[in-house]
Structures are given as C-alpha cells and as structure tokens.
Write a protein that binds this DNA or RNA. Structure first.
Lengths: 252, 252
DNA sequence: CGGGGCTTTGATTGTAGTCAAGAAATGTGG
DNA sequence: CCACATTTCTTGACTACAATCAAAGCCCCG
C-alpha cells in the first residue's frame, strides 16, 4: 500500500475504493535511485514496469551511430518502462535525473489487473494512448518547427505537468537537465540549444537562474507553442463498470 | 464475421477459436473509402476505432502554422484511430491513400472485449505499445539522422511490414505516396526529399520506376538504417489465460 | 582552492529550406 | 483515344538554420 499520485487514472475517471486500493497495492516497496543511476538499460530484460513516486527520470535510446535520443522526461505519477512490455528486452534506458523513488510492478501482477479489473486495464490503456499522443506531438514539433518554438513547447509541457502536481509555483521550476540532455530530447546540439535559450532569455520570455526556469509570460508562450491543447476524455461511456471486488488483495 | 488479418495479435500469442471468432466479429461491416477520401478529420468526434482490411491510410496532424506532420502510414491489419480513444475529439486526420476497406469498431464494443477477454485486451495493449515504439524510433531517426538514412529507415520499415503480408515480392512494392507526403512523414521538404532519393537511386541502393520502389541491396540498406531491430515478446508469461467463452457472440 | 563538468561564445562549414520554373506524369472530359 | 488541365517531380540558384570545432569562462563539489 504505497502513497502514489493516481492522477494518471483519476484524471480520466472516478475510482472506487477497491480500485484505489488495488492501484496502491500494485507496486512493490519503492526503491530509491540516486541521481545519475541507471534504473534499467536498453537491452536489459524487462520483467516489470515502474510506478514513479518522486523525482525526474529520463527515458532514452542510443542509435548505432552513438547518438542518444531522449524519448521522454518522466515526472512523479508517470508509469515507466511500459513500451518494453511487448518486447523481449527493454527498448529504452531509464536514468535518474535526480534522486528518485520508483515502485516496480512485476508484469505478472499486471495480468491479474487485466483479469480482475477491466476498468483499470482500460484506464491503463488510455494512459498509454496519452503517452503515444505526446510522442506524436513531440515528433510534429521536431519535424515542423524551429528550435525556438520547440524549446517553448518543451518547457511549457513540463510546466503544465509540474503545475498539475503543484510543483511550479508562480510559473517557475527547477529543471534538473543539462543542456546536452535537453538537446538530446529536442533533436538539436547543445550549442544550438544554448544559443536559442539565450535568445528566449533576451526576449524576456523566460528567465534562467542556474537550473531554475521562470516563464515570464505564459500566455504569449502558449500562443507561440505550435501544439494543439489536447482535451482528455473524462469518464468515457465505453469504460467498463467499477468492480467492488477485484480478486484477493495481495497484502492481506 | 469478417476476414481480417489478425497478425497484430497472432504475432504475439496463439489465439483460441473463441478469441479468433471474437476478433473477427469485432468490427462492423467494412466500409470502402475511395482514394483521397478523409475517413476522419482531426477534431471530429471519435466514437470508434477502425480495423483495416485493405489499402493504405495516412494518419496526420496539422500544426497552427499550417504545416502537416504525417504520424503514421497504416497498412492492412493495422488498427486505426486508437490514440483518440483517450480524447474528446480525434487527434489525427485519417486519409485514404488508395481505395481502402476499414471496419469501424464502436468503442462500446471495446468495453465488452476488456470485460470478456482480458487476454485479448492485453494483446491489444501490446499492439499499442508496439505503435508507441515505432513512434519513438521515428522520432530518433528524425532527431539524430540525416535525410538519406532517414529515407532508408522509412522504406525499409514499409518493406518489412509489406513483406510480412506477402506484398513485397522480390523486395519491390508500390508506394502510393507523393514525395510531398513522404516529406511530411520524415520532417523534410519535398525538394530535399527528392534530391536525397535521387542520390540513393544513383548509388544503386534503390530503384524507382513511377511509384514502384525496388530495394536492390537489402542487407546494405539494413546496415545503413539507424534503428535497432526490435524483437517482439511472443507469448509473454504475464498474458492472461485464454477464455473459451467470452460473452455472447454479437451476430449469433 | 583545485578540478571536472557545464555553459557560453566565436568562426566556419554544411545540410536543408526557399523560391522559382520547366518537364513529366496523371487524370478528365469530349 | 486524344487533348487539355492539374498534379507531381525535377532541377537550379540562393539563403538560412543548425552542426561542428575549438576555446574560454563559470560553477559546483569535494
């Protein structure tokens, strides 16, 4: 029974007590990874996924050329490592950006979730689709947008996700990534990223003080961002009904 | 009961008779869309997903700037429109590249699938994860790769998917896309795509005759492609058991 | 108070975008 | 089956955004 942000699920539908309990008992005892630790490397066996409780985690893959592409910046409440559910070995490397807390969920336990709680399974599927849309959006930004707008889109996305967790007071937050890593996310070199960042700084749109980023004019930034605002479907009529009982609780 | 390629499911696990039957009765009567028809536009309501039986379909999104990004080229056996399951309106526009046949599946019917057949629900989830990995790969190729290698990766992916359907005899296939559309997929202008294509042609790696593409040296091309070959997890031990009975058949 | 990673800046190169126009292919109607 | 209209493809000339290479300054941490 761990205290874990359920927003990935509750954003889309109300959960019964039994469901909340089930989700909270889904993960094993959380593990603490230190900053820069590798949680799981590309190619490793992938017998579990992870619920993220605290910290920042980078998901990335390395191409044969040696170049690294960051595919996702994960925040608390995210579910890590799910793309690899369908593969014999992990598709992405998961690296701790800060000290962080993650609870492993053996895939065999996911089976029970699918059997006992079709509603939670459906919500899990929706969460995955949301991630997929995030990838589509990132891809569109990369393909069709110049560096400056891409940075705005990225920072704004982080801001909105942190704000939902109450972690971006006054439009400011700590960004624990090097410019190299941000560049690897956006598909540009750190040099070019740096220049573009200072342009944004000079324009007064955002201020950086060390790793602290402050969005000075969120509305203007939102206007410049090239992505549609997605509207979550809450309580879709196709969701299966809640089940009050959903199989034996694992921990008594 | 429609004849539909089940490879998206059977690639990963054997299906019981009941399961096959259920999948084949999932879709409504197939609809024929003519070339260039819009199956569903971005922003439309999205009450269903689609099973694809025949033809080619493009999934794309348009940015505020007016630029279009193609997010996926769909082939027979694919499941269309699933990203929008989690949204109030469709995230992508689905356009028929050729005359094509698709069977709509109302989302309410997906609910029954989740309730009656947890095993099929889990396989569906895995199929979605595969799509997500495809997006990650495409993203990596865009961010970290030059035009020539990106084209190789794209053509090779199409080839492999068609070959699995027996539609790329001798390493050749019809590609019913304009260079503009291919450019919109790869994040480059049609002019630049054209020049890069002719380079590949001049190098002898691939031959184009009208819309017919022939891969002359697949092994060399595969070596140049910058993506890892993903290995599907077949029959993962965490899959729920088959159910012989899975709710009332819809059509008797 | 070093030292190593990170950031910043400059100079130069190169890949890809833009604009434009002619050629080829494709589709349409008579 | 041909003639015309419309896309699509191809090519050239020029521009610009981003990569590369290199070095200096900064800052945090031990």
């Amino acid at each position: 029974m761990i205290d874990y942000p359920l927003n990935r699920f509750t954003d889309m539908a109300a959960l019964s007590d039994a469901e909340q309990k089930r989700l909270r008992s889904l993960g094993d005892t959380p593990i603490l990874y230190k900053r820069a630790a590798t949680i799981r490397a590309e190619g490793d066996p992938a017998p579990c996924i992870y619920l993220m409780l605290e910290g920042w985690v980078l998901a990335s893959m390395v191409l044969p050329s040696g170049a690294r592409q960051v595919t996702k910046v994960h925040l608390p409440g995210d579910i890590l490592g799910t793309p690899s559910m369908a593969l014999t070995s992990a598709a992405e490397t998961l690296t701790a950006l800060t000290d962080c807390l993650v609870a492993p969920v053996p895939l065999t336990r996911m089976r029970d979730l699918f059997v006992d709680h079709p509603r939670l399974a459906a919500l899990f599927l929706m969460a995955v689709q949301i991630e997929r849309i995030a990838l589509m959006d990132a891809m569109a930004a990369m393909g069709k947008t110049d560096a400056r707008k891409q940075i705005i889109t990225f920072i704004l996305d982080l801001h909105d996700r942190l704000a939902r967790l109450g972690k971006a007071p006054g439009g400011a937050f700590e960004l624990p990534m090097t410019q190299e890593q941000i560049g690897e996310k956006l598909g540009m070199t750190s040099v070019h990223l740096n220049r573009s960042l200072r342009v944004l700084d000079a324009e007064g749109l955002l201020t950086r003080t060390g790793r602290l980023v402050r969005l000075n004019d969120i509305e203007t930034l939102r206007g410049l961002s090239q992505l549609p605002r997605r509207q979550l479907r809450t309580d879709p009529e196709w969701l299966p009904e809640s089940r009050e009982w959903g199989g034996p609780a694992r921990d008594g």
